[in-house]
């Protein structure tokens, strides 16, 4: 079970770093945090699971979305040097 969740976490991490649309990236990060809290629950750490769900998936997502709202949504294409 632990290994399955960890593999999913790695896939989500790669996705959230590779999406060109930052909003999608942030949603991936939110799911990443939710899976983290599930993992903590399985590892017998319910208090950390609750904190991670509230802080990582909740507050972090909100402030990321606010930042994207105030800046820009699409990642710029890197120019050649």
């Amino acid at each position: 079970m632990t290994e399955t969740i960890l593999i999913l976490l790695i896939i989500l991490g790669i996705l959230s770093l590779e999406f060109k649309d930052l909003l999608n990236a942030v949603i991936c990060l939110a799911i990443f945090s939710l899976l983290c809290s599930l993992l903590f629950y399985y590892l017998h750490a319910p208090d950390v699971a609750i904190a991670e769900a509230a802080v990582g998936a909740g507050v972090a997502t909100v402030i990321f979305v606010l930042t994207i709202n105030k800046t820009r949504r699409k990642e710029e294409v890197e120019e050649e040097e």
């Binding site: 959230s16 770093l17 990060l29 590892l43 990582g56």
Partner: peptide
């Protein structure tokens, strides 16, 4: 990553990995 927000996302992933590591090691005792 070139994008600043992506850098912060990566920082989050980095921190989570250490937290998971500690919890995982701690959970093996019981």
């Amino acid at each position: 990553k070139d994008n600043l927000i992506k850098k912060v996302i990566a920082l989050n992933i980095f921190n989570s990995s250490i937290v998971i590591f500690f919890i995982y090691l701690g959970s093996r005792t019981g």
